[in-house]
Design a protein around this nucleic acid. Structure first.
Lengths: 125, 125
DNA sequence: GTAAACTTTGACATCTGTGTCAAGGTCAAG
DNA sequence: CTTGACCTTGACACAGATGTCAAAGTTTAC
């Protein structure tokens, strides 16, 4: 499918799909006319990347996570040097800290909505 | 205390304390000479704001969360209009989604570190 | 075949959180 | 009183994610 359709499915502007591709986070084939052509799998992948972006991960971190999730030949256990592992462990602590903060904020908001009689807005679907 | 000491306690550059103040997220008194003067409580508050920033919340969202956490006179139940509640509920869903994504990433990284024999880097303290 | 709608690349603009530097005021130590 | 360390404001710079626009090619519809 072409980029605008893919963008709609991903839930991000076409502009961003081009940007993610340029950043090496997603891929696309090209039709003979030069138009980007997305497969369902590529769209699914883009959706994933988009979610990570929205979660606040930097493109650098996202690249690492993607590599981890899709282990290829050169990404075997041996490729995880002490240095990379240390970096990852550090990033991990940042992420964990972030989760804790977000959970606190979430609870504060939920609490507030309940207190103000808007509990109906919670778990709406 | 003066700004550099406060900054050290907060764990953020002095530059950022000035910035947060400018954004209306924190406050400080002024000494007669014009220097900012921070109380322990203000430092504690700044630490909180800093944590929210590091969690990836926008200043706009942080202001809302702060208002919620410190309910003042005009912030009573009545002040939570249907509109604000709706906005909050929407933001809440964003935050929850973000948490889920971060948890997934965290688990992926933890898993990876374990698989590559770097489990020692986890829970290091 | 022409117009509308879509695609391409590339460039420029914006916003946020930061770093950094400059010019000047303040203060404490010598 | 001078020096060095600290504070003030203001400005400029930068990166990352995004909006937007322009020029040019393509496709689709009429």
């Amino acid at each position: 499918m072409k980029i605008s359709e893919a963008a709609k499915k991903v839930g991000a502007p076409a502009r961003m799909l081009r940007y993610y591709e340029q950043q090496g986070l997603i891929e696309s084939s090209r039709s003979t006319n030069g138009y980007r052509d997305y497969s369902e799998d590529q769209v699914e992948h883009a959706r994933h990347v988009r979610a990570l972006i929205e979660a606040g991960l930097s493109t650098r971190m996202i690249k690492i996570v993607l590599d981890i999730e899709a282990p290829s030949a050169q990404d075997a256990a041996g490729a995880c040097t002490q240095t990379l592992a240390g970096e990852l462990a550090r990033e991990l602590r940042v992420v964990e800290n972030r989760i804790v903060c977000l959970e606190k904020s979430r609870d504060a908001v939920i609490d507030y909505l309940r207190r103000t009689g808007h509990a109906d807005l919670l778990t709406p679907a």
